[in-house]
Every structure is written in structure tokens, then in C-alpha cells.
């Protein structure tokens, strides 16, 4: 009788295990680990809305500030200060407030004071000064960044542009931009500036080559949709003006009317500024372009 007792441990527990496991398997057999679509898929954002959104930047600022208050390592504190400067700089691009840039300068200055051996700190401080139109300080910062890291692409780029546009020094600008193009040919605006420099020197073929590079770089970048630390309108201005210069060189110097017409058509498609557009149309009338 004892051996038939279903409540003995050696009978009861294996049966219980088998029944429970089997029933659980049957109950959940339809479950999929790749259920699709998820409800939130409906909430897709337009892709052009980047990560730099006010809520995200604010959240980052809060986190970095709390990290700063708890961090004991001086080296890490410097990086946090620098990252705070970056966040405030982004906040400025969202809210357009000068106070944000002042905060960015404050944090960048602190990071530079503590870590004068890090090129990135100087570059970002310089970038903030450029936005504040304080170009002398910006130039000093870029030069310091290049003393520490001679191949700092963005510092070379910005310094080349500052020398050309703000200090009217094409020689220095040429020096830095040539160095930059040896490292990376795909950077925008610098080819345009070099084209202008060689156009002033009346080296038309060389200037044309740089303008062609500029528009090719622009096409490449816009196709890939890379976000750059350069305003899109500046990118577009450089490319449009490069097309216009190409038109002039093809029409006046190389006497290739077909290429000139194609370049001018591209210019018209790219140019957003109506005043500039109408001025160019006036100038190009003499070549028969409408």
C-alpha cells in the first residue's frame, strides 16, 4: 500500500515538476522574442532632428553638474568641465542666448587652466570665441591647440578660415588649409577659400581645381548626410560661390561655354539668397546666361 502512495516524495515531486513545466511550456509556446511592430514605432521622428534637443542637452548638463560635484579625480574633473562647456555651446545653438556662450567660455576656460596640454580644450574654447566674434582670442586658442596637436583638423580648418575672412591674411590661410588638405580632402569650405586665394593670384587652373573639389565635397557630404560642426548655410554658400567662380573661369578664361552654363545652372539651383542671385544674373547677362 505504501509503495502505491502517490504522495511519497520520490513520486510526487517528479510528477509535479513534469506537469508544471509542461503546462508552462504550453501556456507560453506562442510567445515571440521578436514581436513587431512595437507601439512606439508610430512615433518616428524626422531624421533631420538631431540629438541636440533642449531636453537632451539640459539632461546632460544636469548629469555633468552632479558628476562634477562627486568626482574627486582632478583629471576627470577637467573633462567634465570641458563637457559642460560643450553642452552649453549646444544649448546656445538651440536657444540663441549669449549667456549660454558665456557659460561655455567659463567652463572651457576652467578646463584649459587645469589641462593646458589637451588640444581639444583649446579648440572648443576657440570655437566659442569665434561664435562670439572675438577672433583674436579665437586665433590664439586655435594656435595653442595646434602647438599641442599639429594635425588637429578642426583647429587647422577654423584657423585657415579666420585668417582669410577675419584677418585678411591669405598667406597664412593658405599655409594652414594646404596642411589640412594633406590630412583630409573631404572637408568643406577650405577648398573654396583656397580657390579664392589662387583666383586673386590669377592662377586660374589651380583655382578651378579647388572650386571643383569644393562642390564635389559638398555633394559627397550632403549625400551622406553627415552632420558637421559647420552651419549648413555656410556650407551651401561656399559651394554656391564656388559654382559661380567656376562659371566665370570657364566663361572668361577657358572659354568653355557649355561648362560655364552647367556651372551657372548649378549655382542658381543652390543659391538661396535672392539679392546675390539677381546680382549674379545681372553680371552673367554679358555671357548670355539667363
Amino acid at each position: 500500500m505504501k509503495s502505491l502512495n502517490i504522495f511519497t516524495d520520490r513520486f510526487f515531486y517528479p510528477v509535479l515538476a513534469a506537469v508544471w513545466i509542461a503546462s508552462m511550456l504550453m501556456l507560453h509556446s506562442n510567445f515571440s522574442y521578436r514581436r513587431k511592430p512595437l507601439p512606439s514605432v508610430d512615433l518616428e521622428l524626422p531624421k533631420n532632428r538631431g540629438v541636440q534637443k533642449t531636453a537632451i542637452v539640459r539632461s546632460s548638463i544636469n548629469e555633468l553638474k552632479s558628476a562634477l560635484s562627486t568626482e574627486n579625480d582632478p583629471q576627470d574633473q577637467l573633462h567634465i568641465l570641458h563637457n559642460l562647456g560643450i553642452a552649453y555651446y549646444d544649448m546656445h545653438s538651440l536657444q540663441q542666448g549669449r549667456s549660454m556662450l558665456d557659460s561655455a567660455v567659463y567652463y572651457f576656460m576652467k578646463s584649459v587652466e587645469g589641462g593646458p596640454e589637451i588640444a581639444r580644450f583649446y579648440y572648443n574654447l576657440g570655437r566659442t570665441y569665434t561664435t562670439l566674434c572675438n577672433h583674436r582670442k579665437a586665433r590664439t586658442c586655435y594656435e595653442k591647440a595646434l602647438q599641442i596637436k599639429p594635425d588637429h583638423i578642426l583647429a587647422l580648418h577654423n584657423l585657415g578660415l579666420v585668417y582669410y575672412f577675419e584677418f585678411n591674411n591669405p598667406g597664412q590661410s593658405n599655409k594652414y588649409l594646404q596642411k589640412l588638405l594633406k590630412i583630409d580632402r573631404d572637408l568643406p569650405i577650405c577648398n573654396y577659400v583656397l580657390g579664392e586665394i589662387y583666383l586673386d593670384k590669377k592662377e586660374y587652373k589651380r583655382a578651378l581645381a579647388y572650386f571643383i573639389n569644393e562642390v564635389q565635397t559638398y555633394q559627397k557630404l550632403t549625400r551622406r548626410k553627415f552632420s558637421l560642426p559647420i552651419a549648413k548655410k555656410n556650407l551651401q554658400y561656399a559651394a554656391a560661390t564656388a559654382y559661380l567662380r567656376m562659371t566665370e573661369i570657364f566663361a572668361e578664361k577657358i572659354k568653355n561655354r557649355q561648362n560655364a552654363a552647367a556651372a551657372f545652372a548649378s549655382y542658381l539651383a543652390l543659391e538661396n539668397n535672392i539679392q546675390r542671385k539677381s546680382k549674379s544674373l545681372q553680371r552673367m547677362k554679358k555671357y548670355g546666361f539667363k
Binding site: 524626422p46 546632460s60 578642426l154
Partner: peptide, 25 residues
Amino acid sequence: AKYLYPVIASHPELFDVVYALKNPD
């Protein structure tokens, strides 16, 4: 927000948004 955001913000030339959702972003 603490570690990755500064990377994207300081090197935007290296990143490109290819898919985005809201609530939360």
C-alpha cells in the same frame, strides 16, 4: 547623457542620425 552625449556633441562630424523616435527621444 553623462558619457555619450559629450562625445556626440564634441564630434558631430563623426555621427549622423539615421533613425529617431520620440517620447522619450
